[in-house]
Design a protein around this nucleic acid. Structure first.
Lengths: 245, 245
DNA sequence: CGACGTGTTGATCTCTCTCAATTAGAGTGG
DNA sequence: CCACTCTAATTGAGAGAGATCAACACGTCG
């Protein structure tokens, strides 16, 4: 594919992302090293890898995860277009989690020095990075609340709501006709700390109750109110606008 | 108490913290607005509060938490001296978690603009902030792995190890005679997504097996190897040196 | 067409929760 | 100095949410 200039990145037209100055865009452009495609199921960063680069996901979904030595896997969070990958592992630390593509993805690649260059040349961008990192943490915070204190039904409802909103934010319409949802039930189970079987049964229960519907990689919100109620989620509407590095 | 100049902060003598330049120290000093004491059990930041300041904890322990509307509480992570509090809520976002003192604490207070000032005046400090935020996230990542995929015994072993190391890093010796451990079993339960009763029983089981011992607010590591084995934790030794804002 | 990945459902099993009761220590007030 | 109260730790018993085991359906693909 032909690389697109950062300033013309189609993602930037979404209202999910805040505008940047020409200087900032030029800086990002100058730090960009290339683009890569990673197919669904392939690993973007290996668990324990210490020389990983930085990436911005700009098409497709991915997820961060950790595993125990016997293979039990925990998905830490899902990555959607616009998400920045690899901040955690800077500073000569081995990355303690892996990143894997959920659907076919395309990523912009940055050198590892980009983090520091951003801070040095454009403090405003550095500030954005801190904000982005804090933002991602709060996503993990929410997951921890779910996995620690919600039952299976509540966890699934909460996850569906959050992912629906994030997925819908990528669309021109508001997701009336369903939103892309590339997760298998195994992914849902691994994100929520549930077994595959119990995930399936709970998912079916909610679906039979008419709260949602999943078909062909699309998620339909059939009763958002009810879902929010069972999840004990007092979420507002859209996600906060964010910087796109 | 008489305020101590940042450059003379006793915490900085610990090898846990990396040295800063005189300019950086002066900047931190200039952003400091005061000091406060918060007693054990008191709230430092309320859940949902939107005008919270920034703090650096410099004595005592605290924790971040979230609650569901029916009162179920999840502790997100524990805060020890040197931890920075409040990055999450910048940018006119309501803070979605609370912070509470675990023991009697003392905190340095910074204005909310400090975050931006740090980035603008000292990009290196801004970089540190990003790193610190990423660091804290990886702590939560670890918790999520525990709560999602480890059983009660494994979770408790993992928590004890991690907190032992963090607590020991505050000490001149390496914690031979036990390390401060101000948690009640309820805190452990809320951090690990377990019930109080089951936490107690599991804790006793490990203790009877001779893996650890808790007494009078002190934690003793009696068989670190065995604890690490049951936790499936391949941790090295000391925590990575970090900036102190 | 057989192998494989994903989804579905039923039948057990068990880890963890809930309920309940007891003990011990710290603090308080008369 | 002793009742009284509160918090934290402890232990037993029964219940239940979720795990594990097993089987089958369906679509895709080499």
């Amino acid at each position: 594919m032909t690389p697109v200039a950062c300033k013309d990145c189609p993602l930037r037209t979404l209202e999910l992302f805040i505008p940047h100055t020409p200087e900032q865009l030029a800086l990002i452009q100058s730090l960009k090293r290339g683009q890569i495609n990673v197919q669904a199921g392939q690993t973007i960063i290996h668990e324990g890898q210490s020389d990983a680069l930085l990436y911005t996901l700009w098409a497709g979904w991915a997820f961060r995860f950790k595993t125990l030595s016997d293979g039990r896997r925990q998905i830490l969070n899902f990555l959607l277009p616009g998400d920045f990958i690899g901040v955690q592992q800077k500073m000569s630390e081995a990355l303690s989690h892996g990143v894997q593509a959920l659907s076919d993805t395309q990523l912009c690649v940055f050198s590892r020095d980009a983090l520091w260059d951003l801070h040095r040349s454009q403090p405003a961008m550095g500030f954005n990075l801190t904000w982005l990192t804090a933002q991602e943490q709060s996503v993990v915070d929410d997951s921890l609340l779910s996995v620690g204190r919600r039952n299976a039904e509540e966890r699934i409802a909460a996850l569906l709501i959050v992912l629906f909103k994030r997925s819908a934010a990528m669309l021109p319409d508001a997701g009336e006709g369903g939103v892309p949802f590339p997760l298998t039930q195994q992914h849902i189970a691994d994100a929520l700390g549930l077994s595959l079987v119990h995930t399936n049964k709970t998912l079916r229960k909610l679906e039979r109750r008419g709260l949602h519907h999943i078909e062909n990689g699309l998620l339909f919100m059939k009763d958002g109110k009810a879902l929010a109620r069972t999840a004990d989620l007092y979420g507002d509407g859209k996600p906060a606008p964010r910087p796109l590095i």
